[in-house]
Design a protein around this nucleic acid. Structure first.
Lengths: 194, 194
DNA sequence: AAAAAAAGAATGAACGTTCACTTTTTTATA
DNA sequence: TATAAAAAAGTGAACGTTCATTCTTTTTTT
């Protein structure tokens, strides 16, 4: 099969270069020529792997989003209590945002921009299921507030993006202590009080 | 003075067009020619009001950020209790994000992108003081958790951006009920429990 | 009549993409 | 196993277009 014979390394290098350049310069200031140069490839080669620039950025988004959710749910154990399960997932996500901050930055930029087309955005959302199921269980058990999953995500997960960005900008240092505080705030905002 | 004689209406039209086009197409896909067309102005005229494209987008950011904080703190009463004061500010901010969602969208895009230069970003942060002071008072009174202001903002204010964006995308409807729930989550996450 | 503001046309640079070609890899044949 | 043919992958230069910005001229204001 033709597709599979093309070096996967080259595709990865292109995706990596895209992330790095878009993070540092923004989509508007990352030409294909620079992406090619950073990936040590001819501009023309990009078009062997991707239809066009939009496709490159869409696929990069989907790749990174998949990596994110895989990381978050990798060793998830569905037999855990809702609270323990949430803490586990939350800390995995926090871990990802801090350790893979380049990738997390890229996602934050994509998620707040009309840079990614709608089908790719939908594709990216798909893999969040385990967390949503945990929340549904928590609601049934009366442990999690009976709120829309959007609200739960907004308050318990999304703040990590804000913190990560400000950490990257050097405005704020998110160390171990802060991280525990952040978790407590996240949990406070979605757990049923008392 | 030359600057002041130039029609302020024209400047406003340019800023407005910039917001609208950047919101809908992203910075990478809003050329000066389109901005000019939407503002009913020649491309050359933009350069009477702004140095260049970067300056236009920087100034637009600062304008909108100032409008945001002005709206948030407009009728703020420093004699209110910490809880009442926070509720007031929070609801003003929520109001802004929902009613002026075009402007809020623009800020969200700028804040997650290397689109705005650092000095303009700093300029934009300046006006948040009243909220920070309220939080300091709350911490002293033992009502607000003794956390970094970044954490407090991340958990109590920033979630509104996420909700607003998803509302704009039609994924979620943020009505009066949801808004009250959102406020309770915000307050839960930063208040001292018990 | 002078000065300021605005316009439209023009400009060079930079962009995404394609083209014509070369190199590398795979397959077929002996 | 060696070799030739075919296919695939990769390339640098070039294309047409679009972009931000400027230049020259016209219009408006004072």
């Amino acid at each position: 099969m033709a597709k599979l014979q093309k070096s996967i390394d080259k595709r990865n290098a292109l995706v990596k270069a895209t992330i790095e350049l878009v993070n540092n310069n923004g989509f508007h200031a990352t030409p294909m020529s620079k992406i090619a140069k950073m990936a040590n490839v001819s501009p023309a080669t990009i078009y062997l792997y991707f239809e066009n620039k939009q496709d490159l950025v869409n696929q990069t988004y989907i790749d990174v989003k998949a990596e994110y959710t895989k990381y978050a749910f990798n060793d998830f154990d569905t037999t855990l209590s809702v609270e323990a399960g949430f803490e586990h997932i939350w800390k995995r996500i926090a871990d990802f945002k801090l350790k893979e901050s380049e990738h997390a930055m890229f996602l934050a930029q994509c998620d707040n921009t009309p840079m990614i087309d709608e089908p790719s955005r939908q594709e990216g959302i798909k893999h969040l299921q385990p967390l949503l199921e945990l929340w549904e269980r928590g609601k049934k058990e009366g442990i999690i507030k009976p709120l829309s999953n959007y609200l739960l995500y907004a308050y318990s997960i999304n703040p990590l993006s804000f913190l990560m960005i400000n950490q990257k900008r050097g405005a704020f240092q998110l160390d171990e202590t802060h991280l525990e505080e952040a978790f407590q705030s996240a949990w406070s905002s979605i757990k049923v009080c008392k």
